[in-house]
């Protein structure tokens, strides 16, 4: 990396991290947050130590009020 780019890259990293912190604080998870995470992991994997590409499963339970057999 060029020396001239270093402060800008550092600033970008800080901004990505801030995006993740704010999204967690406001519980708002938009596609932009995902992009920020992906870029941060590429830039500094130690910033998100447990992110290795684990996958969640899209599933939510319906409450049948005891009627499901």
């Amino acid at each position: 990396m060029l020396e001239i780019a270093t402060p800008f890259v550092k600033k970008a990293g800080e901004a990505y991290l801030l995006v993740l912190q704010r999204s967690s604080e406001f519980e708002t998870y938009t596609p932009a947050v995902n992009s920020a995470r992906e870029l941060l992991v590429k830039m500094d994997p130690q910033a998100v130590p447990y992110e290795k590409g684990q996958l969640g499963i899209e599933y939510h339970r319906v409450d049948w009020m005891g009627l499901s057999l």
């Binding site: 999204s23 998870y29 447990y50 684990q54 969640g56 499963i57 899209e58 599933y59 939510h60």
Partner: peptide
């Protein structure tokens, strides 16, 4: 499951501690 999809693992841990793993049957959970 919502926090897992969002990859907000701190929140996943918080909710998981409240739920516990007993009697959980769904694969996603």
């Amino acid at each position: 499951n919502e926090f897992t999809i969002a990859k907000d693992y701190k929140k996943v841990v918080g909710a998981a501690d409240s739920l516990g793993s007993q009697n959980v049957t769904s694969v996603a959970t």
